[in-house]
Amino acid sequence: NKEHILAQKEVLTPIEYEHYVKHLFDIGEITKELYIELSS
Rank of each mutant, 00 (worst) to 15 (best):
P14G: 10
P14A: 14
T31P: 07
E18V: 08
I15N: 14
K2M: 12
E3Y: 04
I5N: 02
I27S: 15
H4F: 07
Y17I: 01
E37S: 06
K32N: 13
F25Y: 12
V11N: 12
E18Q: 06
L24N: 01
G28E: 04
V11P: 02
H4R: 09
K22N: 12
E10H: 08
L38Q: 01
T31M: 05
L34D: 14
V11F: 12
V21Q: 00
H23N: 13
T31N: 10
L38S: 01
I30N: 00
V21I: 11
H19C: 08
E29H: 13
T31I: 04
I30S: 00
Y35W: 12
Y35F: 15
E37H: 06
L6I: 11
I36D: 13
D26E: 14
L38F: 05
I36M: 15
F25R: 04
Y35A: 04
K32P: 12
E37F: 07
I36V: 15
E37R: 02
E3P: 06
E3F: 08
Y17W: 11
S40P: 06
I5Q: 02
A7G: 11
K22V: 04
I5Y: 08
E33H: 06
T13L: 10
L12E: 01
L34V: 12
V11S: 11
E18H: 10
T13P: 08
Y17G: 01
K2E: 06
E37Q: 10
I15R: 10
F25G: 01
E18W: 11
L38C: 03
E10A: 12
I36W: 08
I30V: 05
L38P: 00
E16F: 03
H23L: 10
Y35I: 02
E16N: 06
E10K: 11
F25D: 01
E33P: 04
I27V: 15
S40N: 12
E16S: 04
L34M: 14
V11Q: 12
H4Y: 07
H23V: 04
D26M: 10
L34P: 01
D26S: 10
L38W: 01
L38Y: 04
H19K: 14
L38N: 01
N1A: 08
A7E: 09
Y35M: 09
L6H: 07
E3I: 14
N1I: 15
E29V: 12
E16D: 11
H23S: 11
L38K: 00
L12S: 04
K22G: 06
L38T: 02
I5R: 02
Q8V: 12
G28F: 03
K22F: 08
K9N: 04
S40G: 13
L34I: 07
L24S: 02
I27D: 11
K9G: 05
E29A: 15
K22I: 05
D26R: 05
K22D: 09
H4M: 15
E3G: 08
Y35Q: 03
L34A: 08
F25N: 02
E16T: 02
G28R: 02
Y17P: 00
I5E: 01
S39M: 13
A7P: 03
E18K: 07
E18A: 08
E33T: 06
L12T: 02
E16K: 03
Y20N: 02
P14T: 15
Q8L: 11
E10D: 14
H4I: 07
G28P: 00
D26G: 06
I30G: 00
E29T: 10
I30T: 01
V21Y: 03
T13H: 08
L38D: 00
I15P: 13
G28H: 06
K9S: 06
Y20M: 12
Y20E: 02
E16L: 04
I27Y: 11
E37Y: 08
S39E: 08
K22T: 09
E3R: 07
I30M: 05
D26V: 09
E18P: 03
L24E: 01
E29W: 15
Q8W: 05
Q8M: 14
I5F: 05
S39K: 10
N1T: 11
E18F: 06
L6S: 05
E37W: 07
S40H: 13
I36Q: 14
A7K: 10
E29M: 14
I30A: 00
I5K: 02
D26T: 09
